[in-house]
Design a protein around this nucleic acid. Structure first.
Length: 493
RNA sequence: GCAGCAAUAGCUCAGCUGGUAGAGCAUUAGUUUCCCAAACUAAAGGCCGCGGGUUCGAAUCCCGUUUGCUGCUCCA
């Protein structure tokens, strides 16, 4: 990591705080680890990113609809999805090497070694003991087994172990007033399950024909072992997900389609294509038969922003099993190979899942620039957020050149006509240049200045953030001009 | 969670052989200014992250804790 990219990241973080984009959560109480709040401009930018995604996925695709499912769901859902069993790992640390291991993996390794050494009886007994301990969630017993079988740390070679601790990535809470084990509910660790459990509702009520998709934007929660790097990994975060239901056997063509479509969505914002790459998962999750990530080159390296996963029929089949409800689709189309309808089947699923907070950070990093404007005589620079006008929190700022001679009144009058359609700010404090620079810092693409000439001929100057160039236009044309510049058709057309 | 480092005004930092805080910028109120920051005047702003200890006295030394950074570990 170079010093300059390190600085860029730090500067973006402090800029985000200083200008009201992102604040540490509960800051006056010393903050809460890996939780952040979005400020006045951050909330606008985040909403604009959501709108861009929702429009491109739901509004632009006739066969995709959007839902908003609850964060609380029946606990059985997480049994079915594999989250309860798959993502609560017993961990143990070696005190000498400071290395951390999964307790069950240490035992598995030992069982394997016993097997190789021909000690099959020992291997079988340990296997049985371990399985019993895991089933009972008996953590002290797991540690006993590690000690009994004299398992040493591969790094330090010592047997100086800590207690075994459970790392469950799901947050749990109680539903109902009386605390009881049976009332435990989880805060969803992914939004996808809310789509799967509504698959039949949406398909029937919307008369959806395969292939079709269900989209959702919402919060998800993961109790990360370690959460760092600003809003890259948060305990509470927001996902924008779409599950696309397809006929079995066609999943790979749809997988390719969404892989390409989703990258195009990113590149339409004008981001340098070299900053993006695909990353193929070689180790697949329990539910997937193919998985690609779209990665972005952050200052600290390439990180996943979006995942396109072929989830097979795993989730729907699991829910079918656990709920005893048929989640099949009757496909009346005729298979040319057999000349018979495709009939009943559990659809396969292609998932596109983008981390909204990561997308937000990526957008900030991309937009952030400390531009040198000096010449031989004077030193000058400005900090500018080159956000796409569609994403900018404030679309335009309106300034009276000075705060007298009726200029403020005229500026207010122009603003009142425009603020119905656009998010605007009005400022009359400080020198005009300073006001321009303040708007640059929050990414406002246009500034409209009212001067004495405005009072005579109703023209104003419009000043562009990126070029700092100015243009004199009729105030009556402003709605049309701004409308054209911030129109979603610039991104989606 | 472990180890190391850090925390002083909104921001960037100074102050540290222990004697109860200071600058620049930003903010607010004026002045000046007809188009690109850092002009003038004034004001406001700090339990020196939090808790405990040593001391006559702690921002400064010690211990704990919280938050952040780096490494380990984890990442559906």
């Amino acid at each position: 990591m170079s010093t300059s990219s390190d600085d860029l990241f730090k500067n973006v973080i402090s800029h985000a705080k200083e200008y009201g984009f992102v604040f540490p959560s509960s800051e006056i109480y010393d903050g809460l680890s890996a939780v952040y709040d979005y400020g006045q401009y951050g909330a606008e930018l985040k909403n604009n990113l959501k709108t861009y995604w929702w429009k491109s996925m739901v509004q632009m695709n006739e066969n995709i609809v959007g839902i908003d499912s609850a964060i609380f769901m029946h606990p059985k859902i997480w049994k079915a999805s594999g989250h309860v069993d798959g993502f609560s790992d017993p961990m143990i640390d070696n005190k000498d090497s400071k290395k951390r291991y999964r307790a069950d993996q240490l035992l598995e390794d030992k069982i394997e070694r016993y097997g190789k050494d021909g000690k099959t009886a020992k291997a079988e007994r340990l296997q049985a003991d371990m399985e019993q301990a895991l089933k009972d969630e008996n953590l002290p017993r797991l540690r006993e087994l590690i000690v009994e079988h004299e398992i040493a740390c591969p790094v330090s070679g010592t047997r100086n172990w800590t207690e075994v601790r459970q790392f469950n990535l799901m947050f749990s809470t109680q539903m109902g007033a009386v605390a009881d084990d049976s009332d435990v509910v989880y805060l969803r660790p992914e939004t996808a399950q809310g789509i799967f459990v509504n698959y039949l509702n949406v398909q029937k009520s919307g008369r959806m024909k395969i292939p079709f998709g269900i989209a959702q934007i919402g919060k998800a929660f993961r109790n990360e072992v370690i959460a760092r790097q600003f809003i890259i990994r948060m305990r509470e975060f927001e996902q924008m997900e779409m599950q696309f239901f397809v006929r079995p056997g066609t999943q790979m063509e749809w997988f390719e389609y969404w892989k390409e479509t989703r990258l195009k969505w990113h590149l339409a914002l004008g981001t340098d294509a070299a900053k993006y790459r695909y990353h193929e998962h070689t180790k697949l999750a329990h539910y997937a038969d193919a998985a690609f990530d779209i990665e972005f080159e952050f200052p600290f390296g390439f990180k996943e922003v979006e995942g396109i996963h072929s989830r097979t029929d795993f989730d729907l089949s699991q829910h079918q099993k656990f709920s005893n409800k048929k989640l099949q689709y009757f496909d009346p189309e005729v298979d040319p190979k057999t000349n018979k309808p495709y009939g009943n089947y559990v659809p396969f699923v292609i998932e596109t899942s983008i981390g909204l907070d990561r997308m937000f950070l990526l957008t900030m990093i991309n937009a952030f620039e400390e531009e040198a404007l000096g010449n031989e005589e004077t030193q000058d620079s400005r900090t500018v957020l080159r956000l796409h006008p569609c994403l900018a929190p404030i679309k335009a700022a309106i300034f009276p050149l000075t705060k007298k001679d009726g200029l403020p009144e005229k500026a207010r009058e122009i603003m009142d006509k425009l603020k119905i359609d656009y998010n605007l700010v009005y400022e009359e404090k400080d020198a005009i240049g300073k006001r321009y620079r303040r708007q640059d810092a929050i990414g406002t693409p246009f500034c409209i200045t009212v001067d004495h000439q405005t009072l005579e001929d109703n023209t104003v100057t419009i000043r562009y953030r990126d070029t700092m160039a100015q243009e004199r236009v009729d105030a009556g044309e402003l709605n049309k001009i701004i409308g054209g510049l911030v129109s979603w058709s610039n991104l989606l057309g």
